[in-house]
Amino acid sequence: DIISFTINMEQIGDIIERVISDIEDKKIRPHRNFSEAGMAEIVEMHERLVANLRLGMSVFLNGNVRDAQKLLEEKVRFRDLERAYANTHLTRLMDRTAPSMETSSLHIDLISDLKRINSHICSIAYPILDSAGALAPSRLRSSLVGADDPH
């Protein structure tokens, strides 16, 4: 569990290193800004990410099954938030919001990277839930497995 945790933290660090480089190259150096709405989305995602990191650290240190379940619930909420913000960003692009157009690829990449970081944080819950027997063998619904398979 410690090795898995360490690997996830290392992967998070790699993502953050790349994100900082992208922000410097695509936003800071060319003096671009996110739209006000886009920046608010990023701030909200970051705040949730920090809260999930705190919860993940608590799960790792204490092994509380209920908190591990809550962390995986937060993973689903975070994924839904990322999708919603990608859609609102596309709406701003259709409305031709200048800051959104200037930082479009960075914004989409950043919210996607935040989701990836969150996934690494949430993976802390899996060993705890597995040890407690609280994980299903597969996330796929059994009624869908093999439904379209002609073999």
Results as ranks from 00 to 15, higher is better:
residue 51 A to N: 08
residue 82 E to W: 09
residue 118 N to T: 08
residue 119 S to N: 14
residue 151 H to N: 14
residue 101 M to V: 08
residue 51 A to G: 07
residue 7 I to C: 07
residue 81 L to M: 11
residue 130 D to C: 07
residue 96 R to Q: 11
residue 91 T to I: 11
residue 148 D to I: 00
residue 113 D to S: 14
residue 43 V to S: 06
residue 86 A to N: 07
residue 88 T to N: 04
residue 2 I to A: 07
residue 65 V to M: 03
residue 33 N to W: 08
residue 43 V to E: 12
residue 45 M to W: 04
residue 75 K to E: 12
residue 40 A to Q: 06
residue 18 R to G: 09
residue 64 N to I: 05
residue 80 D to L: 01
residue 142 S to R: 04
residue 150 P to A: 01
residue 30 P to W: 07
residue 64 N to R: 07
residue 123 S to H: 11
residue 57 M to P: 14
residue 125 A to G: 01
residue 46 H to S: 13
residue 66 R to N: 09
residue 150 P to Y: 02
residue 124 I to L: 03
residue 52 N to A: 01
residue 81 L to Q: 08
residue 123 S to D: 13
residue 65 V to D: 04
residue 138 S to R: 06
residue 91 T to H: 10
residue 114 L to W: 04
residue 100 S to P: 02
residue 10 E to F: 11
residue 42 I to Y: 01
residue 35 S to R: 02
residue 120 H to Q: 11
residue 91 T to V: 10
residue 64 N to C: 03
residue 80 D to A: 00
residue 65 V to Y: 02
residue 50 V to Y: 10
residue 113 D to C: 07
residue 28 I to P: 05
residue 78 F to S: 02
residue 46 H to P: 06
residue 66 R to T: 10
residue 57 M to C: 11
residue 72 L to I: 05
residue 1 D to K: 15
residue 83 R to N: 09
residue 90 L to D: 08
residue 147 A to W: 13
residue 111 I to V: 01
residue 26 K to L: 15
residue 135 L to H: 03
residue 41 E to H: 15
residue 40 A to V: 01
residue 100 S to C: 05
residue 51 A to S: 10
residue 74 E to P: 00
residue 20 I to K: 14
residue 60 F to M: 06
residue 104 S to T: 03
residue 35 S to Y: 01
residue 138 S to C: 12
residue 107 H to M: 13
residue 122 C to N: 06
residue 87 N to S: 13
residue 150 P to G: 04
residue 143 S to V: 15
residue 124 I to R: 02
residue 100 S to Q: 00
residue 98 A to D: 10
residue 111 I to D: 01
residue 58 S to A: 14
residue 105 S to F: 13
residue 95 D to S: 10
residue 151 H to S: 15
residue 76 V to R: 13
residue 84 A to F: 09
residue 1 D to A: 07
residue 88 T to S: 13
residue 62 N to H: 10
residue 101 M to T: 11
residue 69 Q to N: 06
residue 101 M to Q: 10
residue 61 L to P: 01
residue 135 L to Y: 02
residue 100 S to I: 03
residue 82 E to Y: 09
residue 84 A to Y: 12
residue 134 A to D: 02
residue 149 D to C: 15
residue 80 D to E: 07
residue 11 Q to S: 12
